[in-house]
Design a protein around this nucleic acid. Structure first.
Lengths: 143, 143
DNA sequence: TTGAAATTGAGAATCAATCTCAAATATGGA
DNA sequence: TCCATATTTGAGATTGATTCTCAATTTCAA
């Protein structure tokens, strides 16, 4: 399914469907949560498949452009991605204590974005809301 | 005022108040909007004052820790900062077309954050909402 | 004033991400 | 199926932001 979308996207832009791109797409969707380019690259090599780091980075950019994946955040240790297809848009709470991530979706937030944009004559495409704080467990451990 | 806060913060951690830190703090607050470390460094040199790049980076980290400034976003071209003191919390809309930034504040959003956190037993401290899309001018130019 | 401990700065090091370009490959047409 | 050609790949170089190193300098409590 995602393969169809990606290939169609490539065709439309006169770009080619290559083995490497197929491999990278497949492994990208083998993640259930977040991932970074380097670990994706290693996961590909582990399974005996081949694709260079350069191709991984290039293909991740393509996948972002066609909306199959999203950049979650840029940390000091590089960019985190996740696939959005069959996953749905959502936002994140990030625990300062232990680094754990909670995903959530809020219809109210989506509506609010629309209202905010209208006020500023801005045409919103996507948003990222990141709430930083302390998860349940870390709140307890503090005491 | 911000100088007092910063010096107090340093004292409490057994760190020292130095000329360089004072210069960097002062120039940081000479910006009214966003800035990046490199241009801050250049602004310091332009005015004949002295502080190395290393010290600029080190001091920006300290200023973040004590809450006087905030990292706005990490772009492909480095980190953007802004000072928050006497400025108030707000969020951003980022134009994909021209890179311009619109600041906004929404009471509704603050309330929404509280609700969202309560549902997840999460103790929110701060949040960042970044809406990406097209500003008024870029919407027109597209046609 | 003094000396231990913190800080500075020039340049090296790191690290993610992009670029280079020759060799390999995909694709539409014959 | 085979060809011609434009696209893509990959190894390694490069870039660019940020951090690190460490000798020399500076702060500050006593």
């Amino acid at each position: 399914m995602e393969k169809k979308i990606f290939n169609k996207f490539l065709k439309e832009r006169g770009q080619r469907v290559t083995k490497e791109r197929a491999v990278i797409l497949q492994k990208t969707f083998s993640y259930h949560g977040h991932f970074d380019p380097e670990s994706l690259y290693l996961r590909i090599r582990e399974t005996g498949l081949k694709a260079s780091r350069a191709s991984v980075y290039r293909t991740l950019n393509l996948l972002c452009e066609c909306g199959l994946i999203e950049r979650v955040t840029k940390t000091e240790r590089g960019t985190l991605y996740e696939h959005t297809f069959g996953h749905g848009h959502h936002d994140h709470m990030l625990c300062i204590g232990c680094g754990s991530i909670i995903e959530f979706y809020s219809e109210d937030l989506e509506r609010l974005q629309d209202n905010l944009c209208r006020k500023q004559d801005f045409k919103g495409v996507t948003h990222t809301l990141e709430i930083r704080g302390y998860c349940k467990r870390c709140q307890k451990n503090k005491k």
